[in-house]
Every structure is written in C-alpha cells, then in structure tokens.
Design a protein around this nucleic acid. Structure first.
Lengths: 227, 227
DNA sequence: AATACAATTTATGTATACAAAATACAGGCG
DNA sequence: CGCCTGTATTTTGTATACATAAATTGTATT
C-alpha cells in the first residue's frame, strides 16, 4: 500500500485540522491515496504526528467535498472515481466555465485584460518547454484570471473545486504533445472573444475547451481502469 | 438571544455529528440562528445534550458549506448573508438550473415526465390553499423531479446546496400572493418546453424563473438589512 | 475620571480515554 | 472437509481533560 510519503508542510499558522485537510486532499487528488483505500484515523494520526481529533475534522470536510465516503461504523475511504462521476463533473464544469467566460466579457477590467493577454503568451512559452508541470501551471494561471474576472466568489470556489477533482487526469492530458497546438488555439479563441466582448463566442470557446479535455480525460480513466 | 428552541430529532441511526449537522444547518437556514451569532461549542453541546466532539465535526461541515465562518482562536459564527453573496449564488444557480432544464429534455424518462405533469398540477392545487408551507413543498417537489431527471449526481448535490442558501428568503417570495399566477405560468412553460424537448426554450424558462425569484429575494434582503 | 496593566475567566485547539460495534480468526462440531 | 460460532482485536463514536490564547474585568496610578 501507500508508503510513508505523506508529509505535512509546517504551516505553523493554520490550525492542525486545516493542515491535515490540505495534506489529505492533495494526497487524494494526486493519486497518492488511491480510490477505495481506507483512511484509518490512528494510522493517519501516527503518520502525521497529530492526534485523532484534527484527523477526524479534516475527514468531515473531505466527506462533504465528496473526496471520501463514510461507511457507517467502518470509517472513511477514498471515493471511487468512475467514468460516470467524471462525466458528471465535466458536465457541470462545462456550464460553469461557459458562465465564467460570459461574465468575464461583461466585467473584466483593463488590468485583468492585460494579465490575460500576458497569460496567453506565457502559456505559449510554457508549451515550448515541453515540461508538463510548467504547462499545467501556466494553464491554471490563465484560467484563474478569467474566473477571478467574474467577481463572483461562489463561482470561483465551485469552479476551482470541480477543476481539482480531475487534477490527476488533466495532467496526463497536458503531457500529450499532439494536443498542444490545439490548446494554444483554444486559449486564443477564448481570449479574443473576451477581448471583443462577444459573450456567445466566449461561452462556445469555453465549452469546446472542456469538450476536448473531456475526450482526453475519459480516455485516461479507461486506461487506468483496465490496468 | 436565541432561546432554547434548538431541538434535535432523535434520528437514532445517524451518527450524532450528522444529527447535529442537520439541526444546526436547519437552524441557520430558517434564521433561528442569525448571521453573526457565535456558535459556542460548550453551549451547543449542553443544549443538544452531546459532547463537544460531534458539535465540532458538524461545524467543520458547515464551514465547508459556507454557512459558518471560522475566526481563528475565536470559533465559529453564522456567516453573514449580503446582497452580493445572494446575487453570486443566484448567478450560479441560473446557469445550473438552465443546464438542468436542458439535460432534462434529453434524459427525462416517461415515468419522470408523468411525475412532472402531476407535480405541476399539485403545485396549482397547493397555490389555492394559500398556505406558504404547502406551496413551498410542492415547488421543491417539482424542481426536484427536473433536477433528478438529469441523472447527474454532482449537479443534484450542487443545485440543492445553492437552493438551500436562500431558503429563508424564498419563503417570503412564496408568501407573496401577487406572484402566484406568474409562478404557475413559469412552471407550465418549463414543463411544456421539456415535454416537447425544446432545450433552448426550457433553459430560457428556467432562467426567467430564477430572474423573478432574484428580484423578490433581493427586495427581501434589503428590507431585512434596513430593520 | 480616564487609561493602562494585571489577573481571572472563558473558549478554542489538541490529546487522550473509554465504550460499543464490526471484523477477523481460530477452534470445534456436523 | 466445510460451516458455524465464540472470542479477540481493531476501529470507530463519543466524552472528557488539559493547555494556550483571547477577552473581560477590576484595580491602581496619573
């Protein structure tokens, strides 16, 4: 099973429960804790060097996020990620990303528009490095600008949460070099639509972007499940 | 302050933390616990007859839901509901309700279509009683059918959560008899659009429905804030 | 009378202890 | 040889205890 790779960062200012929450969340999203794996409190407490209390409080949050499921009188385990659940997530995200693009057309500031233009350039540069981590960072940065431009806190929170659910699979998508030109093109489309405040075009471009991501991510999970 | 009205239902099968969670959640959503009111663990524990542990775990969930905010070293208090935060919620809900309506066009079963037709009738009957609680129940039942018809679990969860955020204000909306005819008409529009599988019309009808709700809810919160 | 400082109280954050339930394993019986 | 049962272990669910930080109150001094 999972080795002792779980390592807490010494975030001294946050309560332990939040540190544990972030640690476990990251471990689940990166696949370090695998679907179906049981989360045993004493075990985790020993490994992270804390007591059961913060572990339990962190699990309660993960439970509400859907990252772990509780089995009565048996404890928590990492939630299974099925093709269906990923499609469900992407279906919602498609709608919310389109909403973000539309709202951004109305509300983006000049300052943010400049940032967005820069972020597009940064992304193209990142692609040239062919380093997946760098590309992923640039991609996140670009999308964050659009989401933030909506000025809707709740929307920001929901989109980020949904995006995180596929962290693992998105990474594989970004590694696929045959997709890189298309990604650049899609980002340009989104940027250009927002620049000229064409809401319909921006929403459509955002949907296309998710559609392509969906194809790749679904392929990935099928590979995973057959292993 | 709030009197000892908090009463737990003896849901003997759920863990205490879930009973506490539901109890506190309901108290917040109905306004029994008011925005800004502190949630002190020992008090709540005494009042609900449990120890601090289940109280804390319930608060962690409420925290993630955004119903309470944590102030470091000071504890939890009921989150403020501002006009902005309500508008944010409704903006997201508008998009998701439209998505629900579209998906329902594609995926609703004959059985569910029958239920929906019945629910429309039930709603009209409920309106005649002029009893807000009855009307609200019928309204929820109708919308639940549409949301469930999407077959998207994640979407169901998100829409329900967003809907709950405005429980308090929606109730005031439903009490307003001058809106009743309009509500019936809007429900008919949505039903009819889904029946003939006209996705664009269904989405548009769902958006109109939310728009009207927004007008009323915003009016309500302005009244509340001036008191 | 007002302000500053100290002591006390109160509430959170964390750890640990205790009880009940479920699971696993072993031994006996059919 | 297989199945059932009883016991032991593990793990959760809940309660309580202890430490630390913040808030409040009271007193003394200016």
């Amino acid at each position: 099973m999972a080795k002792d790779n779980l390592q807490m960062e010494a975030d001294d200012f946050l309560p332990l429960r939040d540190v544990v929450f972030k640690t476990l969340r990251k471990a689940i999203l990166t696949g370090e804790l695998k679907p179906g794996e049981r989360l045993m409190e004493i075990h985790l407490a020993n490994r992270l060097g804390v007591s059961r209390t913060p572990i339990r409080e962190a699990i309660r949050k993960l439970e509400l996020e859907g990252l772990v499921v509780m089995i009565p009188r048996r404890g928590a385990e990492v939630a299974q990620i099925t093709e269906k659940s990923l499609k469900d997530v992407l279906e919602v995200r498609r709608a919310l990303d389109a909403l973000c693009a539309e709202l951004a057309c109305d509300r983006i500031s000049e300052e943010e528009m400049n940032q967005l233009r820069k972020a597009c350039g940064e992304f193209e540069k990142a692609v040239q490095t062919k380093n997946a981590t760098v590309i992923a960072k640039a991609d996140v940065a670009l999308h964050d600008i659009i989401v933030a431009a909506t000025g809707n806190q709740r929307l920001v929170q929901l989109v980020n949460n949904l995006a995180e659910q596929m962290y693992r699979y998105r990474f594989e998508y970004i590694k696929d070099e045959s997709q890189h030109e298309r990604l650049i093109e899609e980002h340009r489309m989104i940027y250009e639509s927002i620049r000229i405040k064409d809401k319909a075009a921006a929403a459509a471009a955002a949907r296309v972007h998710i559609d392509n991501q969906e194809k790749s991510v679904i392929q990935q999970i099928r590979l995973d499940n057959n292993v």
